[in-house]
Structure formats: structure tokens, C-alpha cells
Amino acid sequence: MAVVFKKTEGLTDKQFHYCPGCTHGIIHRLVGEVLEELEVVGKAIGVAPVGCSVLAYDYFNCDMHEAAHGRAPAVATGIKRILPDNVVFTYQGDGDLASIGTAEIIHAAHRAEKFTTIFVNNAIYGMTGGQMAPTTLIGQKSTTSQAGRDAATTGMPLRMSEMFATIDGAVFVERVSVHDVAHIRKAKKAIKKAFEVQLEGKGFGIVEVLSTCPTNWGIAPVESLTWLKENMIPYYPLGNFRTPEEGK
């Protein structure tokens, strides 16, 4: 019988713990497939964050290093500087990357560290139970912004990719989404490109993936995809901000 579908070698057989409708699973798979297609699973070292994807070290079928909250880019720097021929990536959420670990990610980009970051932005702290993140939208309810996020007291949502686009060392910056099949395909292309940039030794690459959190948003899985499309994308426009050709 012909094989029509096979799980990627980039992932282990471990069953995901993610909530129903959460798009972490899709993003894991995209990363796993890219590692497999680029034939770098055996050379890869992943750095897992703190947050919902804290257990990512059990899911990726390569050597993995679990970091402290926000510090994954520093950990990845240590690894990549010592093992420049390996393929190093961090997988981080928005609380991890855009809040507690802002310094680490900005400076990894600033030093043009040659690793790849997958930044999963679901506009909320998931693991800790739905608190407000720097990326939470105005009016969006969370357990620490129960009347909805108020710009006057908590600022405007932080656009990270736009910030990376101003840093010379960040040679590949793209924001993608996984709310439908067409966008999932585009997301995979961007992830692949980001890893290729690393393999070519060009600098730091980051793909921001807009993702859902049905549990903490309090929205059913399918509606969550619509909510992402209608609310997140207008504020976080999709597209490529940087490719090696234009910024090096």
C-alpha cells in the first residue's frame, strides 16, 4: 500500500499535551518537517522556552536544551558559538520572548547570532493561566486585564517583528499565521527560509507565527481561528520584513 502520509522525522512519537484547537501542534510539525526536509535533524539542537511549549524538548526529535523563562536566545548563543556547524533554534512564546526575555532576543539579533527563532504569538500567557502579555490586544480580556486591556495603563501591544526589522543583525524577519491552510503553507515556507539563512551563515532569523489560544481566550477552536484573522492580523500585519538580500 502506498504511503500517503507519514509523520515527520523531526518530531518524536510523544503525544502533544496542547489544548484542543491550539495551533502549537501545527507549528511544531512545520518546524519538524523543515528540519527533515533540510536533512538537519541530526545536526539540530533546539532550545525550549518556559510557557505552553515548555515541554517542546519532548516533541522535537533532536537534541534539546530547556531554558529559563526568556533566556532561550542566550542559551542558544552559548550553543551556537561553541558548535557553529550545528543547526540551533529557539521556540518561544510571546510572554517568554516579548516580555521577560526581550533583552536576550533583541541582543541575540543585535549580535547577528546565527540561529533561528520561532516566535509563537498568541497574545496571552497560556501556561500560567491566561494573564495579559505585552502582545495582548487592546480591549482583549485576560486574567490580569479583566475589563479588557487598557492602553492608558498598560500601553499598546508590542510589535516585535517591526522592532527586529530595525536591527541589522536580524537578516530574516517574517510574520506569518496558521489560521488556514494557505497561511500554514506560507508559514512553512518562511520557517524553511529562516533555517536556510542560518545554514548559509548570514545572521539571525526569526519567524513570528500568529497562533491561537482557545482555552485562555475563552473562544471555541474554530472561532479562535476567525478571531485571530479578524483581530490579530489587522494589528500584526503579515509579511516579510527582512530578507538577507536587503539587509545584511
Partner: peptide, 23 residues
Amino acid sequence: VFVQAESEVAAINMIYGGAGTGE
């Protein structure tokens, strides 16, 4: 390799990553 980190927090986490390589 010498890396001047952006903070002591980053430096020790680079050590954490680096130590993981066995060097």
C-alpha cells in the same frame, strides 16, 4: 570564543547553553 553578553543574566544563560555542549 569570547562573547560580551548584554547582561550578567544573559552571560550565565550562555554558560548554561555552552556547558550543555560538553565544552
